[in-house]
Nucleic acid binder design. Sequence first.
DNA 1: ATGGTGGACGATCCA
Length: 256
Amino acid sequence: MALKIASWNVNSLRVRLEQVIQWAQSTSPDLILLQETKVTDDDFPIAAISAAGYHAVIQGQKTYNGVAILATRAISAYPLELPEILTQEQRICATLVDDVLVINVYVPNGSEVGSEKYAFKLNWLEAFTTLVQTLLEQHPKIVIAGDFNIAPEDRDVYDAETWHEAILCSSPEREALQGLFMLGFADSFRLHHPEGERYSWWDYRAAAFRRNRGLRIDLTLISSPLIPACTAADIDPTPRAWERPSDHAPTTAEFN
DNA sequence: ATGGTGGACGATCCA
């Protein structure tokens, strides 16, 4: 069962709808995990998504956040039992593809180190890791993809000195991510790419993309039984150069 | 030099 799973923080699905469809047609992923759809379920552009050949699981809200999974095959929402901190904002949805549980996440940004939002981010990550630990008992094969809002290591950051202990890079955030690695998860991109200067997000300001001043904060983590099956993982920066782009690039991971 | 951009929404909040 070959499977290509893509993830993309689109920063408003309504604005980026045509880009998502165009990129899907050129890349042909079986699943596309979207973050920051910024659309309520009532306003989700289901007709255009259907016309492009995709089914959808949606978990939206007004103005902020919102996630969705698009799939070439029929899918249904996996019934997650979430603690209260994970239900305050729409940041998680999941679906089962054969024996693989695919989880789409939009981890809180955290604003700045030491802020209230930062504490929320760390508490959110702790609750999420506990959830994943429980899910592993029923589902040894889990893919968690999305915008983690954490650059795992300094090689994932364009200027590690500037970003030292800053938001997206601070030690407590990286240690929280380590909690998932300790459950046996691997960063699929790093299984195939040891090199630096490969990023998934570039600030809209100060020509950050043109200068490749980015961070790799969009990750696809795979549980240990999936590691031998992961044949490729990559980041596609081309849509970031399109007119009116998202600030994130789509990423992919492939399995045989 | 504390900027600079973009989305949602309709004054700011969030990233």
